[in-house]
Design a protein around this nucleic acid. Sequence first.
DNA 1: AATAAAAATGAAATCGATTACATTTTGAAA
DNA 2: TTTCAAAATGTAATCGATTTCATTTTTATT
Lengths: 349, 349
Amino acid sequence: MEKQVTIYDLARALNLSTATISRALDDSPLVKLRTREMIRAMAEKMGYRQNLIASNLRKQQSRTIGVLLHEVNSHFATSVLSGIEKITTKERYDILIAHSGEDGAREIANTRNLFNKRVDGLIVSLAMTTSSMDHFSPFFEQGIPVVFFDRIIKKMPCSKIVIDNLKAGYQATAHLLDQGYRRIAHITASLQRNVYEDRFKGYKKALADHRIPFVPELVETCSLNREDTLEALNKLLLQKPDAFFITNDFAAAVCMDALQQKGIRIPGDMGMIGFNNDILGSLISPKLSTIDYPGLLMGETAAQTLMEKIKTKKNGKAILESKNITIPSTLIIRESTGKKDRPGRSRKA
Amino acid sequence: MEKQVTIYDLARALNLSTATISRALDDSPLVKLRTREMIRAMAEKMGYRQNLIASNLRKQQSRTIGVLLHEVNSHFATSVLSGIEKITTKERYDILIAHSGEDGAREIANTRNLFNKRVDGLIVSLAMTTSSMDHFSPFFEQGIPVVFFDRIIKKMPCSKIVIDNLKAGYQATAHLLDQGYRRIAHITASLQRNVYEDRFKGYKKALADHRIPFVPELVETCSLNREDTLEALNKLLLQKPDAFFITNDFAAAVCMDALQQKGIRIPGDMGMIGFNNDILGSLISPKLSTIDYPGLLMGETAAQTLMEKIKTKKNGKAILESKNITIPSTLIIRESTGKKDRPGRSRKA
DNA sequence: AATAAAAATGAAATCGATTACATTTTGAAA
DNA sequence: TTTCAAAATGTAATCGATTTCATTTTTATT
């Protein structure tokens, strides 16, 4: 349990000033090369380790960026995180991850904490129950860059990274229609959140374009966890749907399992399409059709956008132009959306 | 872009000293209640936010604990993280997550960085390729608590949280044997790592106890990602196994999918057991038998152990007794390990 | 060798909070 | 009203690095 070695110790040992030590350790050309080498050697020998807390206080930065997430236990979330990390580590920034478990109050507490830790920037996907945006105002007031992704608020004046959820919802629904399904149920989450709202809009637009009436009873909203999803499923089954568009692959997998238990064949009796392109979908049977949502790219883009903002801020003027970036998403057709069987006929297994 | 409000600003505004302000904001009884309320109100009014960097520098702490992981994109990893978080947020600590992507060099860099950030403690699961332990010595020298979990080094003098991998490997293998399988292949990862080594030992012991000869050709080591797993699978198929014990559920799911493509029936023709109890296993078909590895509990236990160490350190004497905790694991029998078909007979689908 | 310019180094303020120690205020007892 | 302990507040050092603004040393030029 030895005392920490500081630049004062190095200065004393070498009979130099802390200014020179500090500059040398930063590899500044202001210090003679020979001196620099001497200092490096002594730092190594004495086991010096820079105290980043002190450094950050003086430099008025933290070299840390905060990431506010609603959940981390999904393939999508971990993809986004690894995309973010890929960019930030390259720039030698750390990330502080805080997740709210979909709870707005925890999101507020986390936001506050990250501000107090003086993160240099923030990347956010909103919790399901967040309604007000007031907790972000300290960041805006201080000009600390914030980038939203996935779950955003459209009217916020800052950069946002999204996919075209309306189009994706449209594609998913249209594909089911093309395969002969007509009574398409939709399991989704809080329509307060843009992502679910837009997919829902796409769903309705596809129905309209195919001249299929929209039936409100075919839509259920839930938290998307296992129990709630099954509850929604059972409620919807009373409406005799012939296909499901489910806004999340995990929930879709849960439903497929339950439907197959009941002896319902997928596809054929029932079409099924998910959302996100979780690896899960390619391992279950039948393999799940879905919308590819490139989490890695989204994370990278969000981080890249944030890093640029941080840099322009450092170099003087804070040009706070907000970017709205739309990442491409793709319909992935696998097995669960095979053609619908004609009624009365039987299908080859 | 207003300037940050500091306690100096509050002190000036209220004609008090920074000492009083600081104490009041900490709710110290040294400050008269009325004054405290006044200060709180003014802080609120002026939009004061504590600068934790300054506070941490002075207090010689970071209220942050570092978590070194090899990967984060698995159900197990996210469970552990959420277990850790559950405990640490309760104690108002943040976690700084660094993952190495199984790369020893990155692990070293991450360890160094976390040290420089002066984390108050470290929770570690080693990367696949880590061999030396030298990068942890600054922590030991400074008496900063370190807790290892899952992938550990047995001889390290610090707390470790593990499951009984030998027993688990034994159970998995014995279960396959009980179901009538005899040529059991084993797909695993680097035997340098205790977890894989111990499971392998359990596998061999189970074989020995059932008087089945151990065949080295039935064991393959790989990274456990999709491609490598498939390669291992194909190599092993040449040895005509009748069951697989695969040390990871994701890899097991990949294999099951590939085997079923080839028309091999699971169970019956081939038994299959995984490891970890990833949710995945309950959604694929047949449902995967596995070993439940309680990640949440492991995370909680690791965090709890660490928090205790941090506390005893703060209260003076650093009693560095190392705990070795073994968490219970359970065999979960589902569908993929149904009885083996007798040769020559056919099984009902 | 004298001089100016460039290079290297140093002194001290600074970042924002905490806290040991000192001082003032308050209130109760004498 | 005085006295003194307790309560409340203040002063200033401190955490460890960075950086502005000197100051000293070195090098090049005449």
